[in-house]
Computed example of a mutant assay.
Amino acid sequence: MFKRIGNLIKGFMGLFIGGLEKRNPEALLDVEKENLRKQIAEFNKGLATHAGLVEKLMSQTKKLDKEETELRAKTAANLKAGNRELAGQYAVKLQAVDKEHDEMAVQLEEAEVRYKELVKARDVSVSTAKKKIEELSRDIDDMKVKTAMAELNEMASGMVTSIGGSGDTLNRLEGMVEEERTKAAGRARVAKDSLDMGDINMKAAEEEALAEMALADFAAAEGIEIESTAKAEPSKPQSETTKGTMGPGVSE
């Protein structure tokens, strides 16, 4: 019973976490990047330990190589000097050192090969992981772009449907605006027609006459001659004047 409840809780938690992961792929990718960095750091620690072992084997091999050279020289020198017993002891020790040197050389070669394999495996793994992360980053960016385009298309589609469905409202609004505009134009025309242009023109003539009188008084007081603004009557044509003065019977 409790096991089934536990499985059910795990299932709900899995669904919840899965939903969060789908909604936040960048966060999940960042977590994987951090995990990759940690794994590389741990791997490099192990690799450094192995590299230390290789260096230790190299140092021991060099030491055995030097000891082997010294023992060989001592064995030869004592043998030539006739010290067979001492030469024999050096020869036995030389065999042991030579054997150890050979074994150490094999271990060093294997450790060196293993180190190079580990470095190659690390580089390949890191390269593959980085490539996968870059591909995922591009996929996430592409997904965002496509999601945004889909949302815009859906929004545009909804707007078209909404605008098409609200045609009656727009028509009513257009009718209301046109009606108010017509009323405003009518009121403006009525107000214009209601103006008494006769009184306005007479008032303007009075103001002009008063201005001319004031100007004439000022000119007279200052001794300034000004031209009369009265319009002279147009002169009659010479032909008409001649006709009037000529007596009857006189031809033109």
Rank of each mutant, 00 (worst) to 15 (best):
A41W: 09
K63L: 06
E67W: 06
H50D: 13
F43E: 13
E67A: 10
H50F: 11
A96K: 07
E68R: 05
V54M: 09
F43V: 08
A77G: 04
L79S: 05
V92I: 09
R84M: 08
E42R: 14
L53R: 11
A76M: 07
A81W: 08
A73Y: 03
L47Y: 11
A91F: 03
R37G: 04
K93P: 01
G46H: 13
T69E: 13
A87S: 03
E55K: 14
E67S: 10
V92W: 02
K93T: 01
Y90V: 00
K38C: 05
L36S: 01
T49R: 13
E85N: 02
Q89N: 08
I40D: 06
Q89E: 04
E42F: 14
F43L: 10
V54K: 08
N78Y: 07
H50W: 10
Q39S: 14
Q39K: 15
A51T: 10
Q60K: 12
K66L: 08
R37M: 05
A77L: 06
E70C: 01
A77R: 03
K63N: 09
E34D: 07
T69L: 12
A91E: 05
L47M: 13
K74S: 04
E42C: 14
R84K: 10
L53K: 14
L64C: 11
N44R: 10
A48S: 14
N35T: 09
Q60P: 02
F43Y: 13
V97R: 00
E42D: 15
G52M: 06
M58S: 14
L57D: 04
E42L: 15
L64K: 13
N44E: 15
L94D: 00
G52T: 07
Y90G: 00
F43S: 12
T69V: 11
K45E: 15
Q39N: 13
E55L: 14
A87R: 01
K62A: 15
E85Y: 00
N78H: 10
N35M: 04
Q89C: 05
G88R: 00
R37A: 06
A96M: 08
L47I: 13
L94H: 01
E70I: 02
K38D: 09
Q39P: 04
